[in-house]
């Protein structure tokens, strides 16, 4: 049994113009100690997926319309709010994108870490503070016994993200969801923070879901990855295979459009033509069809499901995938 099993998840939002189904039948698994990357453009539903796992979809306007999220065998979609709160921050933790605003500005960082430790671990004020200093040291914050009494605005963005990581791992969670943890940071800091997450997750035996739009981040940190498009997973599999031999045209397009140092300079960077369809006005059939160079006639009639091909290392939701290349 996997640590986390997301099974045919559907999440809807009520908007002024109607019901938007932000997540439409998403399924994936995360094993203990594993790192799964979820990749996609902004608006594809990757953050909604993570908030659904945390049980933090704003209701209303959002609601889980169907499917299950099983964590250690327990269906979270039916979990009472009180039991859910015990899980958040202890067994499942989360790091957010914006280190500048994600911490409470009016409390010291020590106060905020202690709050989590005292709630979930039942530590005393003193014990929590000691553990807080330990955690700050572990995430590489210099002079932690001094820093612990500072306010978030006194720290740099990278330092704040380290504080978030310390807070998230303070209760030794089984699963850590990192939602674009490095997007808002300077490039030089990004690598350090990623490395830190990777190392600490391994030390604490924590499984990680890394949500990002940055394929480079996935390539460096993840074991497996799922590519989302317009509320659906359109391809998933081991990172090596996914990057080497993408089967779905969208995955292939994403990979091609990453700027990188190439042996021959391209006349121009390849892009995926067209725009993401409106969730309130989805086309019939495959959602990627309008932007796809290899669409068939059936693509306009039926929506392809994730389909395993015995020869391929990844599963893709496509009627006309790129051919399987065997190494």
């Amino acid at each position: 049994m996997a640590l986390l099993e997301v099974d045919n998840l559907q999440v809807e939002f009520a908007t002024d113009r109607g019901i938007a189904r932000a997540i439409d039948g998403v399924s994936f698994e995360v094993n203990e100690g594993e790192t799964l990357g979820i990749v996609g453009e902004s608006g594809c539903g990757k953050s909604v997926t993570s908030l659904s796992i945390m049980g933090l979809i704003p209701r209303p306007p959002g609601r889980i319309a169907g499917g299950e999220i099983r964590f250690a065998g327990e269906n979270l979609t039916r979990l009472p709010e009180k039991a859910y709160r015990k899980l958040r921050g202890s067994d499942i933790s989360m790091i957010f994108q914006e280190p500048m605003t994600a911490l409470n500005p009016v409390f010291t960082i020590g106060n905020q870490i202690s709050d989590v430790l005292r709630r979930h671990k039942g530590l005393s004020r003193k014990q929590a503070r000691a553990r807080g200093i330990e955690m700050l040291a572990e995430v590489g914050i210099p002079a932690p016994e001094k820093r612990i009494d500072e306010y978030p605005h006194q720290l740099s963005g990278g330092m704040r993200q380290r504080v978030m990581i310390a807070m998230a791992l303070s209760c030794d969670p089984k699963l850590l969801i990192a939602d674009e943890p490095t997007t808002a940071l300077d490039v030089t800091i990004q690598a350090q923070v990623l490395e830190l997450i990777k190392k600490l997750a391994a030390d604490h035996g924590t499984a990680v879901i890394l949500i990002t739009h940055d394929l480079g981040v996935v390539a460096e940190t993840c074991d497996r990855a799922a590519v989302m498009y317009c509320g659906k997973i359109i391809e998933q599999g081991p990172v090596d295979a996914l990057f080497e031999y993408p089967r779905h045209p969208y995955t292939a397009g994403l990979l091609a459009s990453v700027p990188r140092i190439r042996p021959d300079r391209l006349p121009r960077l390849p892009t995926i033509p067209g725009i993401v369809p409106d969730l309130l006005d989805l086309p019939r059939g495959c959602r990627f069809r309008d932007r796809c160079g290899q669409a068939l006639e059936r693509c306009g009639q039926f929506d392809p499901e994730l389909n395993a091909d015995n020869d391929a290392a990844t599963v893709a939701a496509c009627f006309n995938p790129n051919p399987v290349v065997t190494a």
């Binding site: 933090l56 709160r85 899980l87």
Partner: peptide
Amino acid sequence: RDHVRTARAFGT
């Protein structure tokens, strides 16, 4: 605000 979402995510 983001920090309220953070607090929720830590079981407050």
